[in-house]
Amino acid sequence: MIFRVLDPTPEKTAPLGQKAPRLDTLRGKTVGFISNGKEGTKAFFAHMEDVLRKDYGVANVVLRAKPNYSAPAPAAIVGEIKSWDAVISGIGD
Protein backbone atom coordinates (compact mmCIF):
# COMPACT_ATOMS: atom_id res chain seq x y z
CA MET A 1 0.00 0.00 0.00
CA ILE A 2 1.29 3.44 -0.93
CA PHE A 3 0.71 6.33 1.48
CA ARG A 4 0.56 9.77 -0.11
CA VAL A 5 1.25 12.15 2.76
CA LEU A 6 1.57 15.90 3.15
CA ASP A 7 4.39 18.16 4.30
CA PRO A 8 3.49 19.74 7.68
CA THR A 9 5.91 22.69 7.37
CA PRO A 10 5.43 26.02 5.59
CA GLU A 11 6.67 26.11 2.00
CA LYS A 12 7.23 29.86 2.09
CA THR A 13 10.52 31.23 3.39
CA ALA A 14 11.28 34.80 4.35
CA PRO A 15 12.46 37.11 1.54
CA LEU A 16 16.18 37.84 1.73
CA GLY A 17 17.04 40.91 3.76
CA GLN A 18 19.84 43.33 3.10
CA LYS A 19 22.49 44.63 5.48
CA ALA A 20 22.63 48.34 6.20
CA PRO A 21 25.69 50.02 4.64
CA ARG A 22 28.77 49.67 6.86
CA LEU A 23 30.59 52.71 8.28
CA ASP A 24 34.15 53.93 7.55
CA THR A 25 34.81 54.69 11.20
CA LEU A 26 33.06 54.76 14.56
CA ARG A 27 34.84 58.01 15.49
CA GLY A 28 32.38 60.86 16.12
CA LYS A 29 29.37 58.65 15.41
CA THR A 30 26.12 57.99 17.29
CA VAL A 31 25.65 54.38 18.38
CA GLY A 32 22.33 53.06 19.69
CA PHE A 33 21.96 50.03 21.97
CA ILE A 34 18.79 47.97 22.12
CA SER A 35 18.90 45.98 25.33
CA ASN A 36 16.58 43.10 26.20
CA GLY A 37 16.48 44.62 29.70
CA LYS A 38 17.42 41.44 31.54
CA GLU A 39 19.39 41.27 34.79
CA GLY A 40 22.99 42.41 34.22
CA THR A 41 22.35 44.30 30.99
CA LYS A 42 22.43 47.76 32.60
CA ALA A 43 26.02 47.36 33.78
CA PHE A 44 27.01 45.50 30.60
CA PHE A 45 25.84 48.33 28.35
CA ALA A 46 27.38 50.94 30.67
CA HIS A 47 30.75 49.24 30.11
CA MET A 48 30.06 49.06 26.36
CA GLU A 49 29.36 52.80 26.32
CA ASP A 50 32.53 53.56 28.27
CA VAL A 51 34.71 51.45 25.96
CA LEU A 52 33.07 52.85 22.82
CA ARG A 53 33.70 56.42 23.92
CA LYS A 54 37.24 55.90 25.25
CA ASP A 55 38.69 53.37 22.80
CA TYR A 56 36.66 53.93 19.65
CA GLY A 57 35.96 57.69 19.84
CA VAL A 58 32.19 57.32 19.59
CA ALA A 59 30.51 60.70 20.18
CA ASN A 60 27.03 59.72 21.35
CA VAL A 61 25.50 56.61 22.81
CA VAL A 62 21.75 56.03 23.13
CA LEU A 63 20.49 53.18 25.32
CA ARG A 64 17.01 51.81 24.78
CA ALA A 65 15.67 48.78 26.69
CA LYS A 66 12.76 46.72 25.46
CA PRO A 67 9.84 46.90 27.92
CA ASN A 68 9.30 43.15 27.43
CA TYR A 69 12.37 41.01 26.92
CA SER A 70 10.40 38.23 25.26
CA ALA A 71 8.80 40.44 22.61
CA PRO A 72 10.24 42.24 19.57
CA ALA A 73 11.34 45.85 20.13
CA PRO A 74 8.33 48.19 19.97
CA ALA A 75 7.84 50.40 16.91
CA ALA A 76 8.90 53.53 18.82
CA ILE A 77 12.39 52.09 19.41
CA VAL A 78 12.68 50.70 15.88
CA GLY A 79 11.70 54.14 14.56
CA GLU A 80 14.61 55.74 16.38
CA ILE A 81 17.19 53.56 14.66
CA LYS A 82 17.19 55.81 11.59
CA SER A 83 18.68 58.64 13.63
CA TRP A 84 21.65 56.50 14.75
CA ASP A 85 24.76 55.67 12.70
CA ALA A 86 24.97 52.15 14.06
CA VAL A 87 22.90 49.90 16.30
CA ILE A 88 24.03 47.13 18.62
CA SER A 89 21.59 44.55 19.95
CA GLY A 90 21.91 41.05 21.26
CA ILE A 91 20.38 37.79 22.43
CA GLY A 92 21.35 36.34 25.77
CA ASP A 93 20.56 35.85 29.39
Binding site: M1, I2, F3, R4, V5, L6, D7, P8
Partner: peptide
Protein backbone atom coordinates in the same frame (compact mmCIF):
# COMPACT_ATOMS: atom_id res chain seq x y z
CA UNK B 1 -6.90 21.65 -4.01
CA UNK B 2 -4.23 21.35 -1.34
CA UNK B 3 -1.01 23.30 -1.74
CA UNK B 4 1.40 21.26 0.37
CA UNK B 5 4.21 19.17 -1.07
CA UNK B 6 3.40 15.45 -1.01
CA UNK B 7 5.60 12.44 -0.30
CA UNK B 8 5.03 8.77 -1.04
CA UNK B 9 5.85 6.04 1.44
CA UNK B 10 5.29 2.32 0.96
CA UNK B 11 4.47 1.34 4.53
CA UNK B 12 3.28 2.78 7.80
CA UNK B 13 6.79 2.27 9.19
CA UNK B 14 8.37 4.32 6.40
CA UNK B 15 5.83 7.10 6.97
Amino acid sequence: QLASRTYEADSIASV
